[in-house]
């Protein structure tokens, strides 16, 4: 049962955090939540397809299909998050964001609304596709072992419950903070999430030998073990890996550079604007 809890919690927590963050973003920007419906439909349908054709996918491309699909899904999610990050970056430096909600009609996001929503749908849908497919496959394995099924289902329900509850509580915590503080939290979350996902891409490519593996740069498993509760939480939040190698670290930096550039660029623009105003 503990295995089921851990596996499902790990998948659900990551998906719940992504959904929570993007829903809170919609709330802060006064955008309707309707986009979540196509995102969930996309997620559930594509996860079912991935789980149903899991064997065919795994056998494709000389047995590397699964890794390629995973890498592709991770990449799409990262790109969606990078676009969202670039759109929201200017908000980090707006001085007038002390209130709880931002009126959609007078914010700088307005021209990019469609792009923002499309990216949110893809980010949630494709994240769910990968996470939920793993849950389908895991629980599907117990269908023929009736004596273990109850244990797996109970564990699954507990993992799902804990993950979703944490998501809900996080959502309300985020809703009650000011817009500016929220966007700082969201931006930092996106940076770590994209960094973590990019390390997963590197891991997939290392597994199929597309990249040559090197010795790990460090091993922090003695401090936080990847398979401990804290390790799972950190994995979900920042893609924690206790013994990453150089390739993974390079991928991490490539993924977070757009965010850092957007941050620097908007900071520079704000400074320029304020110096012009003072003149």
């Amino acid at each position: 049962m503990v295995d089921a809890i851990l596996l499902i919690l790990r998948e659900v927590l990551e998906a719940a955090l992504i959904i929570t963050m993007l829903l809170a973003m919609s709330r802060k920007l006064s955008i309707s939540f309707n986009w979540i419906v196509p995102a969930l439909v996309l997620g559930v349908l594509s996860s079912w397809l991935l789980a149903h054709y899991a064997y065919a996918i795994a056998d494709a491309l000389d047995g590397t299909g699964q890794e390629w699909i995973n890498a592709l899904l991770y990449l799409s999610v990262i790109l969606s998050f990078i676009i969202i990050g670039l759109i929201i970056a200017p908000l980090l430096f707006s001085a007038s964001l002390q209130e709880k909600y931002l009126s959609f009609t007078d914010n700088s996001i307005k021209p990019h609304k469609t792009l923002l929503l499309v990216c949110s749908i893809f980010a949630v849908g494709l994240s769910l596709a990968r996470e939920v497919a793993e849950i389908w496959i895991y629980l599907g394995g117990f269908l023929h072992q009736q004596d273990l099924l109850q244990s797996a289902l109970t564990g699954g329900a507990i993992g799902l419950g804990i993950g979703m509850s944490l998501g809900v509580i996080t959502y309300y915590l985020l809703v009650f903070i000011s817009v500016r503080r929220f966007f700082i939290v969201l931006f930092v979350f996106l940076i770590f999430l994209c960094g973590g996902l990019s390390m997963q891409i590197a891991r997939q490519l290392l597994q199929i030998g597309m990249l040559t593996s090197a010795t790990p740069l460090w091993d922090s498993s003695t401090i936080v073990n990847e398979h401990s509760w804290l390790g799972e939480l950190l994995y979900a939040l920042i893609g924690y890996d206790s013994s990453p190698n150089a390739i993974q670290v390079i991928f991490y930096w490539i993924a977070i550079i757009p965010f850092l550039v957007a941050l620097a660029w908007n900071w520079h623009r704000r400074n320029q604007a304020s110096s012009t105003t003072s003149i």
Partner: peptide, 29 residues
């Protein structure tokens, strides 16, 4: 907050679920 009832129900169920399931896991172990 659009509805006090929805807010309270969702948040209370989340807190109860979290506490209940954490207790269940602790009890199980």
């Amino acid at each position: 907050m659009k509805s006090i009832r929805v807010f309270l129900v969702v948040l209370l169920v989340a807190i109860v679920t979290l506490a209940n399931f954490a207790a269940a896991v602790r009890g199980y172990l």
